[in-house]
Structure formats: C-alpha cells, structure tokens
Design a protein around this nucleic acid. Structure first.
Lengths: 126, 126
DNA sequence: ATACAATGTAGAGTGAACTCTATGTCAAGA
DNA sequence: TCTTGACATAGAGTTCACTCTACATTGTAT
C-alpha cells in the first residue's frame, strides 16, 4: 500500500510537519508520485516504528540519521549497524537500571511522606 | 556546613550557571551571607540530590518548581506533595515498562542482524 | 594597597526537536 | 469554471534546559 503524507501522519501519529522535518533531517526518504507528492510505503511504516523506538529510548536524531544512512547503503553496513544497536542496548540497560534505582528511592520517599502525614494528623487531634 | 556556589557546584556536579538558573526558576533558594553571596547548606545538598532524581526520571522543571513551592509551605502541603510523587511513580513505572519492551525488541533486532550478517558472509564465501 | 580570583546581576546565545506561517501548486467536486 | 482542500517549499518561531557573556562587586593573598 501507498500513503499520502496525511494518511501516513494518521497511521504513525506523527504530524505532517514532523514527517517533513524527519525527511529534511535524513531519517526517511519516501518516494514521490507524478505530482511530486510524498508516497509512503508499508516499508516506511515499519521504519518509522523503529525510529520511534530509537527516539523513545533516547537516541538523538543525528545518530538515527547516521543509522538511516548506513541502512540506505544496504548489506555492506550490516555489521556497523549491528554494532550501533549493541552499543545502544548497553545504554538502554544502564538507563533501565538507573530508573529502577530511582523507583526504589521514590518509594522510600513516599513511605516517608505517609508517616509524616500520619504524624502531623496525630498532632492535630491531640 | 555552608558552601559557596563554587564549592556547591563541585559537590553537586551542577555548574554554577545551572545553580543560578535553578534558583531563578524557583527550584532552590539558598541563603545569602553578608556580602550577598549564596550560602548553600547540607539541606540544600540533599534537596539538589532529589531534584536530580526527579529530573532524571523526566519531571520537567516547571513541575519541580511546583513541588518546591509546596515544600516551602511546609507541613500543610504534605499530602499534596505525596500525591505528586505517587503520580510521578506511576509515570516512572510506565516508563520502565516501556523501556523493557524496547529492550526486548532491540534484542530481537540484534538477533536478526546476527543472522543476516552470517547469511551474507556465507554468500560471499560460496 | 593592589592584584586577582570568585561571585553578583542581567540578559543574550545555544542546540535539540519540533511546530507553524507564508506562499504557491494541483487534482477533484459543485 | 471555480473553489476547496491536501500537498509542496522555505524559512521563521517556539519550548526546554541550559550555557555563556558583559560588566560590576567583593574576598583574599602578597
């Protein structure tokens, strides 16, 4: 299937301005039809899904562009791309670990608040 | 103990510009000494540590400011602050879940690459 | 007393990632 | 034919979170 930018925007949830911006930044290169209109494919759809994943895990646009450039060069860049993803996985693992530590501390803080609130309420009623 | 902004910057790892910026944004309000110099306390130190935690888990500065304002109002705002933290914990849990999903997908992708690389290498040598 | 390093304020500049505006083109329906 | 709506480009504007600059003042070492 082929999609206009409007359709593709709805499918991806990305806003047509953002899609054009991503194209300008070299993240995606949709084909054009006779009238120079962007013509997105199902392949573009899965690619955008992966871009969103990379973004959501904190990869900056410049780095995603680099990945996109390698991708456009096909098989010869397979191992370099894998290397990028392995590096990124490591960063992601660190990020998850850090958030889990934060979660523990936040739970402690909330427990502390629970006790404080009880204490102040006791003071009021005594 | 009391710290000058330079000392405090080293203790927190935050840069004196950033510390002044945080003050301007209402995140922290250090005392001033006779000569109008900022005079950070150990209390400020633990507070900055908590701010860093909130930031690192994605809370925007505006929201941290709100928390700081409540904090400055003392005990009457305890439950409201706890409510904020409970909300934030929920967001954090979602974030962790999301990242773990991303991690799984990334692992799959890396596995896919491993196979692709092996395939292309076989093609070359055959 | 003097030099100089640290600090103060006010405001400008930066980089990332959008988001919007102005203006023009083009295909399809009334 | 005319109008309307989706699309095109180029470039400006926005938001966030710093980060830096210019210039004045203060604390400290010699």
């Amino acid at each position: 299937m082929k999609y206009s930018i409007g359709e593709f925007s709805k499918l991806t949830g990305l806003g047509i301005h953002t899609l054009r911006y991503y194209e300008q930044e070299g993240l995606i290169a949709p084909e054009r039809n006779s009238g120079n209109r962007r013509c997105y494919s199902d392949n573009d759809l899965t690619w955008i899904a992966f871009i969103k994943r990379l973004k959501d895990t904190g990869m900056p646009i410049k780095e995603i562009r680099h990945y996109a450039e390698l991708r456009a060069d096909g098989d010869p860049t397979l191992s370099e791309r894998m290397e990028m993803l392995v590096q990124h996985r490591q960063a992601l693992n660190k990020q998850i670990t850090r958030l889990q530590e934060h979660k523990i501390k936040l739970n402690e803080k909330i427990e502390f608040y629970r006790n404080e609130i009880e204490r102040t309420q006791n003071n009021v009623s005594s």
